[in-house]
């Protein structure tokens, strides 16, 4: 019958439309599944593998400091006295600083993150530590280093390249092991530099 002829044609159109929409939705789901989520991407530091940004804060403790002026490794630590994990991390930083002074390999430098100068000075008097502490420079330093939460630290090679990022507190032995690994790699690859990253 002529009256029933258009029906299969229409259902075919609907089927193709549904398949088309389904394919688009599937592609979107696959795209979203295969992408890294926001949490993972936030751990991608913008400074890793690059020349360390400047440290322009004024020295609250110790002397003002400029990256690239020493031939030592540098542990740049962002902290605040109101941050409990930072307080817990402090003994580890003291160990890195003490061992570094002995070996002549590592310096520690701290940058204040959203804290008062008086509180920071009192904190160091109470908890110890005599390395350089820079003020936050109105948050510019943390912003340049991509720091949004403390504690966060970065290991900078003697050539001034950021090679490692530590989120949530450092462990002294980890820092020392990493430096040893990088130095071994550099020695293994012909001793062209002690950074082991080939950057800069």
């Amino acid at each position: 019958m002529t009256a029933t002829e258009p029906a299969p044609r229409r259902s075919r159109t609907v089927m193709f439309a549904a398949i088309g929409v389904g394919v688009v939705m599937l592609l979107l789901v696959v795209l979203l599944i295969t992408r890294k989520n926001a949490e993972e991407r936030s751990t991608d530091s913008p400074v890793l593998g690059k020349t360390a940004p400047a440290l322009n804060g004024k020295a609250l403790i110790g002397e003002e400091f400029d990256i690239g002026t020493t031939d030592r490794w540098l542990l740049v630590n962002f902290f605040a006295t109101w941050c409990v994990p930072c307080v817990q991390e402090h003994p580890q930083l003291r160990k890195v600083a003490a061992d570094g002074e002995k070996s002549g390999k590592v310096d520690v430098i701290s940058v204040v993150y959203g804290d008062k100068a008086a509180d920071v000075r009192r904190f160091f008097e109470e908890k110890g530590g005599d390395w350089t502490v820079l003020d936050s420079d109105d948050g510019r330093t943390a912003l340049d280093w991509g720091v949004a939460k403390v504690p966060e630290s970065f290991l900078v090679s003697p050539t001034g390249v950021v090679v490692e990022r530590f989120q949530g507190g450092v462990v002294a032995s980890d820092v020392e092991d990493l430096i040893a690994t990088y130095e071994d790699q550099a020695a293994g690859s012909g001793g062209s530099g002690s950074s082991g990253d080939g950057g800069s």
């Binding site: 605040a80 993150y113 959203g114 936050s136 109105d138 948050g139 510019r140 943390a142 912003l143 720091v147 949004a148 939460k149």
Partner: peptide, 23 residues
């Protein structure tokens, strides 16, 4: 705000948000 889940820098008082506003 870099250290919050879903708040704009304009309405956050975290140090990172203050730094971004200044920038």
């Amino acid at each position: 705000c870099p250290s919050c889940k879903s708040q704009a820098v304009a309405s956050s008082d975290t140090p990172s948000s203050q730094a971004v506003r200044l920038l």
